[in-house]
Computed example of a mutant assay.
Amino acid sequence: MNPAVFERGAVRALMSLPGAVLDKLSAGLETHSRSHLDSRLRFLLALSAAKPTLDSGTVEQARRLYRDVINLLDVAPVSLPVVVDHQVPRDDGSSMRVRRYRPALAPRVAPAILFMHGGGFTVGGVDEYDRLCRYIADRTNAVVLSVDYRLSPEHPSPAAAEDCLAAWRWLLDNTAAMGLDPQRLAVMGDSAGGNLSAVVCQQAKQAGLTLPALQVLIYPTTDGALKHPSVQALGQGFGLDMALLTWFRSQFIQDPAMMEDYRVSPLRNPDLSGLPPAILITATDPLRDEGLEYGEKLRAAGVDVTALDYPQLVHGFLTMGGVIPAARKAVNAICDATVQRL
């Protein structure tokens, strides 16, 4: 039997145990108090303590490990009638891949979501997030366009931000050809992708482009300094440790001056007025405080912000819906909130 298939089956079998049993097993394994977390997620974190971390090897090893983890935990693939890869031009004449998902029940002129994946600007991509994007498209009946932006360390910041803004320009120029409603275009992303979603809104405003109708920021990183209190309070034992955060930062910020750049630290932009309405998602997460502060600054600038908080979940839950029912429920709620506001 394929080892990955065996591991997936074993994890799902364990997750079918009663929550009280999993809590008891977790308590015997964990070195950090996590009793407030969802029972299945708590047990998964306890098991993962014995696994190698993304920062324990090379970048290529980290990318393979990240792919394996998503394959293990994410939702099952959904069949869609249209899944097409586009080659989208960059300003320098090169191109990047954007994958378009059109669900069967999308209206003739459909809303669309430009999706930016997570992974610390270093791991992940369109292929790793394929199942999630299919799920989001099917749940929202919106066309989802997933951006395969350049990764660090080969392409440090601001390469990813430049790519995502180029993808936004391309989307604006091609709504009619793809049967999309130009008044109902959103950006969405998790972690690094949440950062990029916020940055696209800021940079589109600065460039005089049409803004997204909605920004969906899922546990975003909004400041490169890693100085917020939650980084220290939750930076050990909750799936995204301080050592890993620091490793990611060393990959995508190679010029210290970039720390001040709004394309890395959108929280530092003093003018957030006129930006699109936001859905801000937080969890028990070292990035929690910087996400909350960004939401507060948006509100202070007159931007409507809807907050969805999941203290029983941790960073990365967006791609855990295949084995953690509470994570899938949260993904559904995020999708439903997006539909209501788009």
Rank of each mutant, 00 (worst) to 15 (best):
G93Y: 00
D285G: 07
P276Q: 10
T319K: 11
S56H: 11
E260G: 00
R249K: 11
N2E: 07
A192I: 08
V78Y: 07
I281V: 15
A110E: 01
T284Q: 08
R288W: 05
R67C: 13
V78F: 02
L308C: 03
L292I: 09
A233C: 00
S94N: 10
A278T: 05
R100M: 15
L73W: 09
L73N: 11
L214Y: 15
A76C: 03
D285Y: 02
Q251W: 00
R299D: 13
L37G: 04
D91V: 15
D255T: 04
A207D: 15
G193L: 15
N141Y: 12
L171S: 02
E290H: 12
T306G: 05
A159F: 13
Y135N: 13
A4L: 06
F6L: 06
A49T: 15
G322Y: 00
V123W: 03
R184E: 09
S16G: 12
L267P: 05
L14M: 02
V123S: 01
A278F: 01
P153R: 06
A243D: 11
R263M: 06
W247G: 06
M259N: 00
D181L: 05
T306V: 13
D336L: 07
N195P: 09
S79I: 12
K329T: 08
A301S: 15
A110K: 02
S39W: 04
N195L: 08
G237L: 06
A300K: 07
P156A: 02
Q202H: 07
E162I: 14
R150V: 08
V126A: 08
L292E: 13
L72M: 03
E296R: 15
R42T: 03
T58G: 13
A159R: 08
L37S: 08
A160V: 03
L151V: 07
D309H: 05
S79L: 11
D285E: 06
A166G: 07
G118I: 08
P107N: 14
L132T: 03
L287C: 09
A207G: 14
A301T: 09
E30G: 09
S48H: 14
V147N: 14
L185T: 07
C201H: 10
D241F: 07
E260L: 00
